[in-house]
């Protein structure tokens, strides 16, 4: 390759990647700028800092009980994530460490549920929640998400790297199996838990369809539902919508920037 072609290739590579990076980031900038602009400026496509930020925050506050809605989302996401991690890590550990023919079959059946689309579950689940008397409660949102085949799979894959010498030594020392799990496995697998935490927290925080179905009164709604209903008004106040969208994006954005390494590890770790 002569120098000219090499120079041109480099130029086009950087130009292409630069445009792609810009397009990927721009909607976030648009969201932040939009929060400072009036709804009219936003739908006219104004790119720039405006002076309507306080008005937008006030409009958002007047439309919904913001602290309550934010708390609902946090509460649901944290409870779901904590319980999912407990259940899935127990199962992942159990399947990997205590192997038997029948448990392998149960494991295959669990993996099969990865293929089940939520649309095929939501009607019976809705009927079931009605029978349990859980419609319009946060438990209705939390319960169906706890048995996650993906997270079980992730923990089983990660458990393969858990040194069996540690387990054997603990057994010689007379520890019970649940003590080995609690006192040795959990601390050793910290980074696996961290990665799984991010994935499950994000999924729960962003969950939309199922909360939309089971949460009916305003004081139970999550931030995701609020963003959606504000933006689907006939004449949406886009300024207030932008403020709500920032609030809906901020927690996951913070988690991402603080734990970027575990984030990527959690995503790709399961397929290695």
């Amino acid at each position: 390759m002569d120098r000219l072609t090499r120079g041109l290739t480099a130029f086009f590579t950087y130009a292409f990647l630069g445009i792609m990076a810009f397009l990927s980031v721009f909607p976030f900038i648009w969201m932040v700028l939009g929060a400072t602009n009036t709804s009219i400026d936003i739908i006219k496509g104004k790119v720039g800092i405006g002076t309507a930020l306080l008005d937008n925050i006030r409009a958002f506050n007047a439309a919904v009980d913001v602290p309550l809605v934010f708390w609902n989302s946090i509460k649901i996401a944290l409870i779901s994530t904590a319980l999912t991690l407990i259940v899935a890590s127990l199962a992942g550990y159990g399947f990997e460490v205590f192997r038997s023919k029948y448990r392998e079959r149960v494991y295959s059946a669990i993996l099969l549920t990865l293929m089940v689309p939520f649309a095929a579950l939501m009607i019976p689940l809705f009927v079931m929640m009605g029978k349990f008397g859980l419609i319009n409660t946060h438990w209705a949102v939390i319960l169906p998400t706890l048995g996650s085949a993906f997270v079980i799979f992730y923990f089983r894959q990660s458990t393969k790297a858990f040194p069996s010498e540690l387990r054997d030594a603990a057994r010689v020392d007379g520890l019970k199996e649940w003590q080995i799990f609690l006192l040795i496995y959990v601390p050793v697998m910290r980074s696996t838990y961290a990665a799984a935490f991010i994935i499950v927290f994000m999924a729960s925080w962003n969950n939309y369809l199922w909360p939309l179905i089971v949460l009916q009164s305003n004081e139970m709604k999550t931030i995701t539902l609020v963003v959606s209903s504000m933006a689907s008004a006939y004449y949406p106040d886009f300024g207030a919508v932008m403020v709500s969208a920032i609030l809906a994006t901020l927690p996951t954005l913070i988690v991402f920037f603080v734990m970027q390494r575990q984030f990527v590890q959690g995503m790709t770790g399961s397929i290695k």
């Binding site: 399947f95 669990i110 579950l121």
Partner: peptide, 23 residues
């Protein structure tokens, strides 16, 4: 022990995945 570790997950999946899909 194997079944005890696996039981909570299996139970949850049975109630909230397997039963609804059959239903």
């Amino acid at each position: 022990n194997g079944w005890l570790f696996v039981a909570p997950a299996a139970l949850l999946i049975a109630i909230f995945m397997v039963y609804p899909i059959l239903q």
